[in-house]
Simulated scan of single mutants.
Amino acid sequence: MYIDFIKANYSDKMEADQQEYIERDKKHLGRIIQDRITEDIEKIVERWYALDDIGFIEEEGIFANLLKEAEELYSFGYYVGAISLIGVASRTM
């Protein structure tokens, strides 16, 4: 089961208060993300450092962007996403 409650619906609040609640929630979400990265920073750095250098890619098109994003996904531990993006990138060549 997957339940997603990242954003709250503040339609029951006065319009003037809605943005204040949203900004509060964004700050809280930012702290959650920072905590996750802080807790995993050593693994992130190790995964990133373990990647082989790609060297120079002359093309600045979609392939290079997809490859860069795949590296980031892998480094942050999102292996399925990284593999999927590598597959897409290889088809654009």
Rank of each mutant, 00 (worst) to 15 (best):
Q19P: 02
G87H: 10
L85A: 01
E15V: 10
I3P: 01
L51R: 05
D12T: 05
A64M: 02
Y74I: 03
G61H: 12
R31W: 03
K43C: 03
K13R: 14
L66V: 02
D35R: 11
I57G: 03
L51S: 06
T38I: 00
G87A: 07
E15P: 03
I32E: 12
I32S: 07
R47Q: 06
S90K: 15
H28Q: 08
M14I: 02
K13S: 09
K7L: 04
I54M: 08
I3N: 08
K68S: 10
D52P: 11
V88D: 04
L29G: 00
F76Y: 15
D52L: 07
M93Y: 05
K7S: 09
I37A: 08
R24K: 13
M93K: 11
L85E: 04
L66T: 02
Y79V: 14
N65M: 14
M14V: 09
V80H: 11
I41Q: 09
A82C: 14
D40H: 11
N65Q: 13
D35M: 07
R31G: 00
N65V: 08
R31E: 03
E46T: 10
L85R: 06
I44Y: 04
Y74T: 00
A8F: 06
I32H: 02
E46D: 15
E71P: 01
E23N: 15
D17P: 03
E39T: 04
R31P: 00
K27C: 05
I33F: 12
I22E: 02
D52S: 14
D17N: 14
Y2S: 08
I54D: 07
A8D: 12
M1Q: 13
I6H: 02
K43A: 15
D35C: 03
G55Q: 04
Y10T: 00
Y2K: 08
Y78D: 12
L73E: 14
A50H: 09
Y74G: 04
R31D: 10
I33K: 11
E72C: 11
F5N: 13
I33H: 13
G55F: 05
D25L: 05
I6S: 11
I6Q: 09
W48A: 13
K26A: 07
E46R: 10
G61F: 08
V88T: 06
R47F: 06
